[in-house]
Design a protein around this nucleic acid. Structure first.
Length: 978
DNA sequence: GCAAGGACGTA
DNA sequence: GTACGTCCTTGCA
């Protein structure tokens, strides 16, 4: 990048200075719809935009950032407790505008930077210093005299005063000459002068009685502060000499206070500040939320965009992110008009997305353009290319599918569509297990490759794009590399289209019309399938580089759709930040006690064998108890039991409910089978299988979470599934006792109480339910009491059980048929229950009708956080399919909103725990429950923080109108903690 | 060797 | 009646 250095120009804006200027210079202004004070935000936007326009005329910056003061204390408070002590607290109406100015900055696609413990001046000093080291030019938009110490004699670092002053030009540069006019010294001596004269505003003491003029004279005479203080006795004037000697220490402290720190550990490096074009999809949702009509109009003209294509940012608009209008409104025409405005590819982001799609799709895949990297020079060239472009699509090839076990075999990269490279590092020669192959020639040493790539993979300024990048994050962690920041095409697709097109092969086929090489084509299938390290490098490279190339293409196609289809907030708040959280949970794993499981296996297998013998006895023959087919034939054909039903494929139904029924009717074999099935299920799926998942490296079990496979936004867990560990039966719970805390630790289980019913009460706005939750009542008993006119006191458990079934039925999109089945009552009776329920809670029926209408009209329903859940066959010609969609569309906003809430809790959990200085590891998520591992004895500190984060997770995006309750317990094992 | 269907574990 | 993943058998290649 040395070639371009002459033209690099960094513009740093003193954000806090701008805020206060806007505040003092402008009349107050309140947002029309809710009175939120926004005058300062508006002024800030105007000033920021004007600055970029003015600068672009003759000195366009190539890099830019707005730097803010962080409200917390800084290192200067430790040096001098009185520092800035005279500063009054910020005016009340200014406080809510602080975060909004950050949002404003980001809306203009400019990085907004602030750091706890540092003043904006220190951060600016650091960036200026870094930029100077690279030979860049630096402009600091600020009139703060404290920054004058940064001015360079050669003018490479200058300040820019933009405060309008009558009779003066709008932009006034502050270079060495201006500094000399102000302080009477060259910029490098400014801090010495300030150390002597102090600063009344910041309460920097200085030496009492010495002003700027005297200070400058002294410093110019003695060269610098230290020399002056050492030789103070030589000063002729009595008063001046005495003051200096008496206050030497105060002067030294003052110097420390005014000296700006130039090595702040900034999280974003200079490359991350590269100037971005203003994106209408980012800008207009903000401006509309603020209701800045004039700026909106002006910028729409300049950007040639139509603001009507964008909706106000739901997190910022008046009333906060309330339920989307579609949930509240039954007006179909409104919903349809909105949909049309979003998707008509005639203008704005939708047009851009459509054009990008067409452009990318037309570029053919050329396998010959891919490169195998096996020299340090070529690797270095790729690294340089990544720095230049600022982003890279990346994929790892490994020996297996388990990110906690698979070893790295190669890395593929692509920075530009149509290009791609493969860096093989772990391909082995054929050989038996004992002879052990050895590495194939022509590969760079893995350590060299990782050392070369680590800086870009960890660079905050380089975006790493992947398909299911959580996998690659975990692989790289095991090699000591922290992959961040990320974008994930799988998650972008999920935010847009749900789990419909999961998988890169499907995405490539659907969006690019390109069939990728499949792993089976490359490595074979089944038992003879090769692992990646056994593949020929040339063949592997085509497959691998194609993956990186295609991922980059998909990113170009899918990313613009986020803005075009209003899914940016969903992706940025609920998808992208969750991936690294899940990666860490997977990497941690959980300890499982092998011995407990082994003992249970033995017990279950003995008892199952007894049931097996009993079953043969009762059946009068032996048969495969695991075969529903054979069992059906014995029960209904051979034994001639009446009343059997058939499944849709014509086989006898032998499900647990059928067998339970038969058992009650006096068929002892049915009971035996039920018992046998339960035990063999527990043994086969849990006590036998779980130990095989124990990772030999960590000794723990690491599940894998799928973030993008559930229609409603829930997670799913696999290999092994730790979201269906038994809990309902006594035998089942014994399995939970095998999930234990590591030595010296305890597990905490924290679960949302009745989260879905609470969400339902909120969405459907059911006052009676809300009141019950507000008063902390037993919700099922209360429902029963309302429906059956029975007092809660002394209520028969059967009555409560029925009400509970109805409550769940409501959540599942109730039908008389289903409820009757569940409760074992007649269809008519179940229908009466439902009717009564609707009479007692009339809002429920309205809610259900709204969802049904909406799904038919729009093809989707939404959660309270704006996640769309699509049902492509909502208008199917098949009546049973249609009713199925109706029920699912009733359930999806409830299940999905609850899922979004716990996602928000998970995303916030780690930083909040860290802030509270709690050492707690989040290990598992089971839909409404989070499992943590904490040092023994710290559970009482951890639990309140965990509860607080979970209970407030919806805020501030959504203000729920029901209280959310979380119950948390600690114990050595999961069974006791739950 | 693989896919589909049935059964069953969870929220 | 919603949403999942896993184990096992069966039937076909």
């Amino acid at each position: 990048m040395t070639e371009g250095n002459r033209h690099m120009h960094l513009l740093l804006v003193d954000g806090s200075g701008y805020i206060f200027r806007a505040f003092h210079a402008l009349p107050p202004l309140n947002r029309k719809s809710d009175g939120l004070p926004v005058g300062c935000v508006q002024g800030f936007c105007n000033m920021l935009f004007k600055l970029t326009q003015d600068m672009d005329i003759d000195e366009p910056p190539t890099h830019m950032a707005v730097i803010f003061d962080h409200s917390a204390k800084t290192f200067r408070d430790n040096i001098y407790s009185e520092y800035k002590a005279h500063r009054p607290p910020a005016p009340e109406e200014l406080v809510p505008q602080f975060p909004l100015t950050r949002s404003a900055t980001r809306a203009f696609s400019i990085p907004a930077i602030e750091m706890e413990g540092w003043e904006a001046d220190d951060i600016m000093a650091t960036y200026a210093c870094q930029a100077k080291a690279r030979g860049w030019k630096v402009t600091i938009a600020s009139s703060d005299k404290d920054l004058m110490q940064l001015v360079e004699p050669d003018g490479s670092i200058r300040l820019l005063d933009t405060i309008p002053r009558p009779g003066q030009p709008p932009l006034r540069w502050i270079g060495p000459d201006e500094v000399f006019t102000k302080f009477g010294v060259t910029p490098d001596k400014v801090i010495d002068v300030q150390a002597l004269c102090g600063d009344a505003v910041d309460n920097v003491p200085g030496v009492p009685g010495i002003g700027v003029k005297t200070a400058a004279e002294l410093i110019n005479t003695y060269g610098n502060l230290e020399t002056l203080l050492e030789r103070a006795t030589e000063i002729k004037q009595n008063a001046r000499r005495e003051k200096l000697i008496a206050n030497a220490e105060l002067a030294r402290i003052s110097k420390k206070l005014v000296t700006l720190e130039q090595s702040v550990p900034v999280e974003i490096d200079l490359d991350g500040l590269v100037r971005q074009p203003i994106s209408p999809g980012t800008l207009f949702p903000f401006l509309k939320a603020m209701e800045f009509a004039t700026i909106t109009k002006r910028l729409a003209g300049l950007l040639e965009a139509n603001p009507d294509d964008f909706e106000a940012d739901p997190d910022l608009r008046a009333g906060g992110a309330d339920a989307p209008a579609s949930l509240k409104s039954t007006s179909l025409s409104v919903a349809k008009a909105k949909l049309a405005a979003q998707t008509v590819p005639g203008s704005g982001p939708a047009k851009f997305a459509a054009e990008e799609h067409a452009r990318i799709k037309a570029i053919p895949v050329d396998y010959d353009a891919y490169e195998i990297v096996n020299t340090p020079e070529r690797l270095a060239a790729w690294v340089q290319k990544i720095w230049d472009v600022g982003r890279v699509s990346i994929d790892t090839e490994t020996t297996g599918l388990d990110p906690q076990q698979a070893d790295l075999v190669g890395i593929c990269l692509s920075t530009q569509i149509g290009e791609g490279c493969y860096v093989p590092v772990g391909h082995v020669l054929p050989g038996d297990l004992l002879a052990g192959g050895g590495l194939v020639e022509g590969q760079l040493p893995i350590r060299d490759v990782l050392d070369a790539l680590k800086p870009v993979i960890e660079a905050p300024s380089i975006l790493k794009i992947g398909q299911n990048i959580k996998y690659d994050m975990e692989i790289f962690w095991r090699y000591g590399i922290n992959l961040a920041p990320i974008d994930d095409t799988m998650l972008i697709s999920y935010a847009l289209d749900g789990p419909r097109y999961n998988g890169m092969d499907v995405l490539a086929d659907h969006w690019l019309g390109h069939k990728t090489i499949t792993f089976s084509e490359l490595a074979g299938t089944g038992k003879s399938q090769k692992t990646f390290d056994q593949l020929d490098i040339a063949a592997a490279a085509r497959y691998a580089a194609e993956d990186a190339d295609v991922t980059l293409r998909l990113w170009h196609v899918l990313k613009p759709r986020l803005a075009a289809e209003n899914a940016t907030t969903l992706y940025e708040t609920l998808e992208r930040p969750l991936a690294p959280v899940l990666a860490r949970m997977e990497a941690r794993g959980i300890t499982v006690d092998r011995q407990i499981l082994a003992r249970l296996s033995g017990d279950f297998s003995q008892r199952a064998a007894a049931f097996e013998a009993e079953a043969y006895e009762l059946a009068g023959q032996s048969f495969n108890l695991g075969s529903p087919k054979q069992l059906g034939e014995i029960l209904f054909d051979k034994m001639g039991i009446e009343g059997g039903t058939k499944t849709k494929t014509g086989a006898w139904s032998t499900g647990a409910d059928v067998l339970e029924d038969l058992a009650l009717k006096g068929v002892p074999l049915a009971r035996t089978i039920v018992d046998w099935r339960q035990l063999t299920k527990l043994k086969g799926t849990y006590t036998d299988a779980l130990p095989t998942y124990m990772n030999p490296r960590t000794g723990r079990v690491h599940t894998s979470y799928s973030q993008a496979s559930v229609l409603t936004g829930r997670l799913s867990s696999n290999d092994p599934n730790l979201q269906n560990i038994p809990v309902r039966t006594a035998d089942g719970r014994k399995i939970r006792t095998a999930f234990v805390a590591a030595p010296g630790k305890v597990l905490i289980s924290a679960d949302y109480s009745q989260i879905e019913l609470r969400v339902l009460a909120h969405i459907a706005d059911i006052q009676a339910l809300k009141d019950a939750f507000e008063e902390g009542l037993d919700i099922h008993a209360m429902t029963a009491s309302e429906m059956f006119n029975v007092p809660v006191e002394g209520m028969p458990s059967e009555v409560r059980r029925r009400a509970k079934a109805i409550n769940f039925g409501i959540i599942y999109g109730i039908s008389a048929f289903g409820l009757a089945n569940q409760l074992g009552i007649a269809r008519g009776e179940a229908g009466d229950y439902i009717k009564t329920y609707f009479e007692r809670f009339p809002g429920i029926r309205d809610y259900m009708d709204e969802q049904k209408v909406k799904v038919k009209a729009d093809g989707y329903v939404t959660t309270i956080f704006g996640r769309k859940i699509q049902f492509p066959n909502a208008n199917s010609g098949n009546p049973s399919e249609r009713s199925f969609v109706e029920r699912a569309s009733i359930n999806a906003p409830i299940q999905g909103s609850a899922a979004d809430i716990i996602r928000r809790a998970m995303i916030r959990m780690e930083p909040e725990l860290k802030k509270a200085k709690i050492d707690a590891d989040m290990l598992l998520q089971v839909h409404d429950e989070l499992i943590f591992e904490v040092p023994e004895g710290t559970e009482d500190q951890a639990i309140p923080v965990i509860k607080r984060v979970m209970e407030n997770a919806a805020e501030p995006a959504v203000r729920l109108t029901v209280p959310i309750q979380v119950d948390a317990h600690a114990a050595k094992n999961w069974d006791e903690a739950h």
